[in-house]
Amino acid sequence: MKDPANDLVNETVNDPVNETVNDPVNETSGGPSDHPLLSIEDLRLSFGGVLAIDGLTFGVGEAEIVSLIGPNGAGKTSAFNCVTGFYRPTAGAVRLRGRDITGLRPSAVAALGVARTFQNLRLFGEMSVLDNVRAGTHLWIRQSVFDALLHTPRYRRGEREITEQAHHWLDFAGLRGDRYGPARALPYGEQRRVEIARALARRPDLLLLDEPAAGLNHGEKAEMLDLIRRIRDLGIAIVLIEHDMGLVMDVSQRVVVLNFGREIADGPPEEVRRDPEVVEAYLGRDADEAEIEQARASVAGGRDDGGA
């Protein structure tokens, strides 16, 4: 049987929804094809005096998987929030195919073809699983209030189509649980799948996954790895925040490493894993003798002070 959903996916996404784009054409550029899908330029974000992101620059090409890694508190999720419009960066720019999207509201960024998941699952708990995935169709379903009030053929057709789409993406994400019941009733791993299905139903060009494998067991992680690859095969670029290094090294084409809001490495996984600065950020510096001596001295000194 022919799959209607694939046609929809292959359709070029051109959303005329948003008219408030700051800088639709980059003066220095030839055409939109010259631009990477996503480019983040010298992004800075501070909360009061705390620098959460201190100069982050990287790009993501079409259908590329880029991982953003770093210790907890390195500013990875903050970077996601800047890209998707939840935070307004203090300085720097976020461009989507050359178009400046910095400071747009999240729904406007979503309208341009960006979907995301959240580190702590953010499902619509009291709504059915299918309704959750239908949220992803909100931007492309055409339905007026009058269609809804009069149940016009367009309403029925639209509702049928988005239901099929919801089923399709739940199948794609490999959901085994009950689709008709409330999302909160599903086990944790299944909720992760629903969140990804919801993001895919948006038919994004760029998908931001914030720790998709967190809290999953070994088998579920393998399935997640497979799912991420299959998403990429649809032509969707992925930016991945993940702590599971096995998964990151396995799936990524490029890895960007953040530490204390600073970018310390950007390259293919093999290269990044050998980078001494990255190793240091993850494992701590080799404690050299001088430092150990100093620590001993301070401990001893403290004891002396206490005695005096």
Binding site: R122, F124, A135
Partner: peptide, 15 residues
């Protein structure tokens, strides 16, 4: 209902 359940997630889906 998306707004009622989770305003941020609704925004992220383009609402």
């Amino acid at each position: 209902r998306f707004v009622r359940e989770d305003e941020d997630a609704a925004e992220a889906m383009g609402v």
